[in-house]
Amino acid sequence: MERELIGRNLSLQDDNGEDVQTVKEVEVLLKPENLDIVRARRMAKTKQLTGYEISVKIVMSKLESRLRYRLLDDFKAGRTMFLPRITGSLDDRITGNTERVLITGIHIHEEIDILVAKIDDNNGIDITLSGTATDFDFVDKFPDYMA
């Protein structure tokens, strides 16, 4: 049986363990930074890992402004816009399996909407929080699926 996991079965909790109710998209990417090197004996080109960045992007409805207000209050007080942790879960509703990922040390340093109003647009207004994290850990993992 061939199946695919669908990202609609997603939930996100903030650092207080409260559900962020209106999450539309979460994207956490590991971006390795490499240095090109040449091996002396064989003159073969390869890459050496020199660092990495974990980018975080959370898109939610404007209806979920509690998290945004908290970050903007930190900004106005001269503090870093920071979330100690978020936990994202992806469920496989057919088997009941869950993958949960703990993302820690999230610094929000991209732009945040303060006021957006679109008179001729019938779509909802979204908030996008973007930045970088310092670490991630899989709290629960999907089992090995057999094809």
Rank of each mutant, 00 (worst) to 15 (best):
T87K: 00
Q13P: 07
G88T: 11
L72E: 10
L49W: 07
R41W: 06
F75G: 07
D15L: 14
K76L: 09
R68Y: 09
Y52I: 15
L72N: 11
D73P: 03
E33T: 14
R70C: 01
S55Y: 10
I37Y: 15
V28K: 01
V26G: 00
D73W: 03
Y52E: 14
D15P: 09
Q48R: 13
A40P: 06
L67N: 06
D74A: 08
D19W: 03
V23R: 04
A44F: 15
S55N: 09
T80S: 13
R41K: 15
R42D: 09
Q48V: 15
L67Y: 02
S55W: 04
F75D: 09
E27W: 01
K47I: 06
K24M: 09
K24Q: 11
R39F: 03
R79T: 05
R68H: 09
T87Y: 04
I86D: 07
M60F: 04
L83G: 05
T22A: 00
V20W: 02
D19I: 08
V26Q: 00
L63R: 06
L49H: 12
E53K: 15
L63W: 06
T46W: 03
Q48Y: 14
E33I: 14
G78K: 01
E53T: 15
T50G: 09
E25M: 02
A77T: 07
G78N: 10
I37W: 13
S65F: 03
P84N: 06
S61W: 02
T87V: 13
K31I: 13
G17S: 02
I37M: 14
L67V: 02
S61M: 05
M60K: 06
D74G: 09
L71T: 11
L83W: 12
R66H: 07
D36T: 14
D73Y: 03
R66V: 04
M81A: 06
D73F: 05
S11L: 11
E25H: 11
D14K: 03
L29S: 14
Y52A: 15
E18L: 07
K45I: 05
K24F: 08
D36G: 12
V28G: 05
Q13R: 10
R68A: 11
L72C: 06
Q21F: 01
P32G: 04
P32N: 03
A40V: 13
P84V: 05
L71E: 12
V23D: 00
S11M: 15
D19E: 13
V28D: 01
E18K: 00
E27F: 01
Q13T: 11
L49D: 05
V38K: 13
V26N: 01
D15Y: 14
V38W: 08
Q21I: 02
I54M: 06
R68L: 15
I86G: 00
V28L: 05
L12V: 09
M60L: 07
L63Y: 08
I37L: 10
T46V: 13
D19N: 02
K57S: 15
R79N: 12
V56L: 02
A44V: 13
L71W: 03
G17K: 04
E18R: 00
E27T: 10
R66E: 07
D36N: 14
M43A: 14
S65E: 03
M81E: 03
K62F: 11
I37E: 15
Y69H: 12
P32A: 06
T80Y: 00
E64H: 00
K76Q: 10
S65C: 05
R79D: 09
A44Y: 14
E25F: 01
